[in-house]
Every structure is written in C-alpha cells, then in structure tokens.
Design a protein around this nucleic acid. Sequence first.
DNA 1: GACGAAATGACAACCGGTTGCCAAATCCTT
DNA 2: AAGGATTTGGCAACCGGTTGTCATTTCGTC
Lengths: 341, 341
Amino acid sequence: MATTQAAAVDRPPTIHDIAALCGVAASTVSRALSTPDRVNIRTRQRIEAAAAQLNYIPNSQAKALSSGRTGAVGVLVPDITNPFYFDLIRGTQLQLKAAGYTQLLVDTEESDEVEASAMEQLRKSADGIVVAASRLSDEALLAAAAKMPMVTVNRDVPGVPAVLIDTPSATTQALDHLISLGHTDVAYMAGPLTSQSSTRRWTTLAEAAKERGVEVRALGPFAPKTQSGAVAADAAVHSGVTACIVFNDLIAIGMLQRLRERGIRVPEDMSIVGCDDIFGADFCNPPLSTMASPIEQAGRVAVSMLLAQLSPVAGGVTRSRSVMPTHLTVRGSTGPAPGMR
Amino acid sequence: MATTQAAAVDRPPTIHDIAALCGVAASTVSRALSTPDRVNIRTRQRIEAAAAQLNYIPNSQAKALSSGRTGAVGVLVPDITNPFYFDLIRGTQLQLKAAGYTQLLVDTEESDEVEASAMEQLRKSADGIVVAASRLSDEALLAAAAKMPMVTVNRDVPGVPAVLIDTPSATTQALDHLISLGHTDVAYMAGPLTSQSSTRRWTTLAEAAKERGVEVRALGPFAPKTQSGAVAADAAVHSGVTACIVFNDLIAIGMLQRLRERGIRVPEDMSIVGCDDIFGADFCNPPLSTMASPIEQAGRVAVSMLLAQLSPVAGGVTRSRSVMPTHLTVRGSTGPAPGMR
DNA sequence: GACGAAATGACAACCGGTTGCCAAATCCTT
DNA sequence: AAGGATTTGGCAACCGGTTGTCATTTCGTC
C-alpha cells in the first residue's frame, strides 16, 4: 500500500496532492486535466496515472468558482407531478448527461414568483436554463433571457430561443375529427390564463371553427389537474355541447371520471379529446383520444439548443426556434355525435 | 438613480461591493449576513439595506467552497418516469425547500453503476443524499453512507438510516383479502431481483400463505414497467392461478391491459392487486385494488432525518429508522374467485 | 475616572481550482 | 553550433465567500 499513502489522508484528493505526487505544479495538473494540449504528453500521462491512482474527482464548486462555468443546467417545470413533464425531464436529463452536464430540476409550483426567484438563484449556479411552460410575462422572460442563456419550451417570445409543440395545428385536426363524427357544438376547455399554449390553441380553434361553420365555445379556465376535471365535466354538460377539446389529459381524465359518476356515457353522450398523451391516457376508461407529440425529443432538442448557445461552434448555425409536430391519436373517448350513428 | 450607481456595473454584486458601499470590511458583511449576532445591530442594518439596494444574492459556489456546506441535497431515484417516485420527489422537494436546501434530482436508470458514480459525484456537491430503492449491495451502501450523510428509502441496511414502507404487512392484508374472496391459488409477481422490497414481500407472503394453508407461488422477475405487464399476465394465466399480488402498479396496469386484450375478465376470471397506488391506479380499467402508502410523507420524513443528521440538535433524538404504514385500497380489480359467487 | 470584560470589526489565510504571464527548456533551422 | 521559434511548466493572482486571530472600541462597574 506504500504507493497509495498519499491517498491515506481522509480528505478527498485535490490537484495539489497530484502535483505533489508527480513533482509538478498544481497549475500543470490543472492544465493536464483540462487543456491536455498545453502540456507535454509524458507529463500528462504521469499526471493522469496519479489522478487515477488517487481516485481524484475534481471539485465542481471550485471549478465553477474560478472558471465561471458550473457544468449545470437548470430545468424549470411548473409541476413535477404532472406526467406531461416526465418525458420532457427524461429528455433533458438524457441529453445533458450525454454532454457531461448536471441537471438541476426545479418545480416552480405554477407560480410566477417562484419561477422568477428560481431563475435568479440559478443564474449563479447554472450555465443556462430550460424553462417549460413559463408563467412569466413576455417582458420578464425576455429580461431573464438577457441575463443568462435560456431556451423555453412551449412558450413563444420573440428573441428567446424556443422549442414549440405544435398543438394549435393538432387542435384543428381534433376539430376536423369531431366534425367528421357529426359534432357541431364543441367546447374548448381552457387551461390557466397565463398559459400561452392554451391561448394559442383557442385562437387557432376559434378561427378553424369559423372557417368550418361550426360552433365552438371556450369554457374555463381550469387548473391543469385531474381534480379540475369534475368542474370541467359539469360545465361541459351544462353548456349542452356534445364534444370537448380539453387543454390537457389531466383535466380530460378527470372529466372522464366525473362523467362516469354522473352516468353520462363517453363517447355515446359526449366525446372527449385530450392533449399530451400522458402516462395513463392509454389505459383510462375509456382510453383517451388525444393530441400526441414527441415530448422526450422536445426535451432533447431544447438542451441541444441551449448547449449550442453555451459553446457556439464556428460555422454552426444556431437555430432559435424548433417546432415539434403533433398528431391526433384516436382511442375510445371520441365517437359519433348523439343521434348520428 | 444616483443611489444605485454601484449596481450599474454589469457583474452581479458581491459582498465586497456591499463592504465598499458601507465602508466596512468584507468579512464584516459576511458575518452580518450569516452570523447576525456577531455584528452590531446598526452596522448590520446598514449592511442589510445596502444588500437589498444592490439586490445582492450570495454566490452559492463560493459559499460552498469556503464553508464546505453546499446547501444542496441529492435525491437518487432509479427511474424518474416511474409515477411512484413523483410523490416521493414532491415530498423531498417540499421539505428541502422549507429548510432552505436545493434538491439535486438524479435518475440512476436502475443501474448500480450509475448510482455509484452519482454518489461519488454528489459527495462533493451535496451535503447529503436520499437514496430511493437502491440497487447497490448492502456493503456498497454502508461504505457510501460512511462517506456522506445518507438516508435510504425502501431499503433496510443496518447502520444506514432508512425510511421503510411497510409493504410486507400490506402484502399479508392483500392475501387475506383474496382469501376472503375465496381464492386459494395465488401468484406473487416479483420485481427486480436486486429490489429488497420485492424479496421481503415474497418472504412475508410465503410465510403468511403457509400459516393460512393456501398456495402462493412466485413468478418473475419482471421489470417495473407497464410493458412487463404483458409477460406477467401471460405467465399468470399459464400458471393457472386465480389471483395475483403484483410487485407494483406499473406491472399490474400492464397486466390489466394484456388480460383485456386476451379476453380474460378482471376480476371475474382473475383478480389483481397492485402496490403503490400510483397516479393512474384509480382510473385504469378496472380501477386497481392496490396497497397504498403515504409516499409524499415518506419523502418528507427522509429529508427530515437527513437534515437532523446534518445539524444535530442538542437533546434531539435522531431516529434512524421510520416505518410508513400501508393499507389495502380495494377497487374494482379484485373479486370473488371463479365459481365462488 | 480607571479598569476589566464583552462586543465589534479588520486582516489575512484558506477552500480548490483556473488562467495570464513569464522564464526555462526544447526543438528546428541555417 | 548559434539563434530564433515553439513548447512546457511554474508563479501568483483571482473567483467570492468563510473564519480564526487579534487589536480596538464600547460598556458597565467600582
């Protein structure tokens, strides 16, 4: 064990220990490890061997402090327990890990204040952030983006790189699907007022409805939780529509449960289209027709865009906007309008 | 704006800026902010005012480097996308935030190697870790716990503080429930071999079955994913049992789908009991009877235990083991054994 | 008004790296 | 072999705080 005596001290090894072991300066060790070209290959190999022997692990805090780069990326989501974000998180995690970055996951609790303070916090401890479904105003977001590299997901603010999920177009697909089933009176069950996605979908939907000459009304807003489904279901029934296009699957699943309780059959009496194709959409009762998109991929793309910002490659074109396609997946919750079969 | 000119520099303010503004030494500012008693109340107020005016935010990296405390806690889960962990994560997040800590969430991908390397990494960048459903050996876990404060969840290793979820006892409840419905031939659908929970449940179940004079056999192992449900369902059908106690809800839900595809009715032909009461267990078809426990609370307790380790309170008793109760929630997936109604 | 104790604040070292600068060593050219 | 170009590696300052030490001030007390 004589050769490992330097490691015998309980404190984890530092570059100074390596330097002492190799008889070089600490700065040389630093260079050998981070700028291999700056150092003689033989010295480097000696240093690498020593590092391996001591089981050296660089102190990320110290590295961050002196270099200004933290090697971490913050990922802000409004609600960790919303299954929609699972795949997104999984995507960002995969891509970040592949690039040697650490993911700092923050739940902003659907609150603009928590979101803002998290950003302020992260400004020091992360190299950049991915912000999903921001609750912040355009101005606040733009200001924040000026202070640190940022990519948004599902939020379109000019000047801020974004990954957008093309649910508006899917909304039109959903409407056409319902029309083809004979529905002429449809409700859009809106999400939070601060959700840009919800607003956009409604705008698109209203326009498409006008073109097609059918009636579409907006109900809500509803919080994006299954519990809101009960309120939404009651509102839908009361409004007399025969089909609903719902802000997200969480609410839609909640509606399914409530409608069942009330003895209203889906899809015989009422058709429901959700959005996101979350975990559970395929096994609820009835299985939910929904607008699906490659969420995990969206997470990966967001990270790629962010990393491209962090270390611009000469000649590489930095995309500032990426739109993910969405398609309608029809399952059991949509059927012919009452009296149409 | 004359008063804010010190903030006009683009670089975020440091304690040195505050010190300059107040005409005191940087160390005094540091003390005023972290050891308020060590400094005159009037000086402190001046400093606090200056800090507020400059919109000062302490640099967590620098703080971590010099103090040795990072203010972060790592949370390791085998699979972020497993809904079981949502509530756990939510619980740890809540409790950590309340205590002013940051949560570093890591997905260990069901791999002992990833888990070990994450721990090594976290050793420098976190003050402690919460490890859920570790895939590591007892020895490795014990060794890791010696190097940094640690609390495990759902993993019992002597010497390592743990939060345990009492699913074994719930397993017995499930068995009694099935027996009361007339089932005499039951299968236990096992989880991963490296999962201690799975092993314990089987041990408890086998013993309980012997006492009660009924037949219980183990099938599997099955990966804890819905996709494994198909294999599990086929295995169960082939074995001829009339009821299954399943390692977790993910597999159970997958079984439900497969059985439906194969035209086997649940619960008429086959009863299914899951475990965890995850998101979706209440709205799958049929709704799943399952063993439920306060997972979010488990997360909160785990963090409390960890924080107690980090800053021991004089006179406070540090608990090293906490068992969360579990109860059976009966829904639609369990019914009388065939020919028993 | 003098004296000792407690409170206060400054200095400087330190945490573990990174990096600009410079001198020494090495290499190549003529 | 001399001279210049290029490597190579060491020194020291620095990132932004924390903390031990110590001199000074303030206070209460006799």
